[in-house]
Every structure is written in structure tokens, then in C-alpha cells.
Design a protein around this nucleic acid. Sequence first.
DNA 1: AGAGTGATGTTCT
DNA 2: GAACATCACTCTA
Length: 202
Amino acid sequence: MMPLPQSWYLRDAAQVARELLGTHICRGRVVLRVTEVEAYLGPDDSACHTSRGRTARNAPMWGPGGHAYIYLCYGMHNMLNVVTGDGDGAAVLIRSCEVVRGLPLVLQRRGAQQGPGLLAGPGKVGQALDLSTALSGHALFTRGGLTLHWGTPATCILAGRRVGIDYAQPRDRNALLRFADADSSAVTRRRELGSLSRGPAA
DNA sequence: AGAGTGATGTTCT
DNA sequence: GAACATCACTCTA
């Protein structure tokens, strides 16, 4: 079982984001299937962390794709992003997942019961994978630690606006850069999503 | 179903 | 010192 090659990541963030749906994240004995993501396009995207320049924290985003960018949010949530392109300052946030393997360990780490909301939300994904900022910059395309593999792609994709970016410009707040597997119940704020081709409902 | 709120700590101004 | 790509819990309906 080989991880996806680095070349797979060296493309536009929105494109990688859609193809990321259905892939498998492997960490120790836990395997998760990605069901919801958000694309952050680079310095020109006011919602993106790189839009306010290079810092020690966002350094991995300025490098080549295929590496993790992990940061601490609200003092307690470790958010997992996948760097895309090459020097683009772009990445894809992993927002929700389904458990493929290692359910007992995931339940223990989450301190929750099994259900559709178990891994719906980026903080929950970070907790289930036992992530920390020490793993930021880790290569996802080489064996060991934290890797990304081919899985079961989504047959139907939903799209909508990104969550929690009220500080961004209206154009970037309204961009349809959140994507989800239409056939999964592990998705946040589902009613705000529409079909990919037709845009969000309401 | 929806609004409100406290927890918690690193990063950047 | 403010902001922060959140979560879980408590109300009110």
C-alpha cells in the first residue's frame, strides 16, 4: 500500500480538494476516509493564512505540495491541511472524515459515541488522529507517521462557502471552495451545500 | 432548530 | 492585547 505520489499534490488547490474526497488518511492503526474539505488558494485569497505574508507558522504552505500544514486553533484544536501546488502558498483543510479502521481508538480519543457527527469538524479529525503542531511540515507521500492513500472516491460532490472566515473579503467569503461527499453523513452544515455544478441551494 | 457562551493557548501586531 | 479556518454545552422555542 503506497502513499499517493508527491506529483499528485502539485496542482491547483480547488482541483486537489475535490479529488481529496474519498482518500484515506493513515496514522498508526487509524485510517480515515475524507468526506469534507476546504480549498485555500494562496496569498491573493484573503481567507488564506498566507494572505498576510510568510510567518514561522505558515512556512510549510510556501513549500512544495504533499506536506502537512498543522496549526492550533482556539487554543485546543489541531487543524490538518494538505499543502498543494509548488510555492503557491495554498492548501486544503480536512474538515470531516469517516472511520475506516481503528474505531475503538478513535472513540477513546474523541471521548464520544459512534454516530454521524463523530468526525464532522476539523478539530475532531485532528483529535482522532492525535495530531499536534510538531507534525506540521511532515511529508504525506513517504511511508510512516502520517500518510495519504487512494481510497473510495465520491460519486457525487456538494459545494458551498467556506466556514469561519468572516474576516475575509466578500468575494472570498462567497467563493464555492468547500466540497463534500454527497453520500456521506459525516459533513458539517449540510443544508448550506448545493450540487457542485449548480452551486448552493437557497 | 437556533442563539449564546466559555474553554484554551499560540501567533502576530 | 486581540484575534483565531472550533467544540460542546446550555438555554429558549
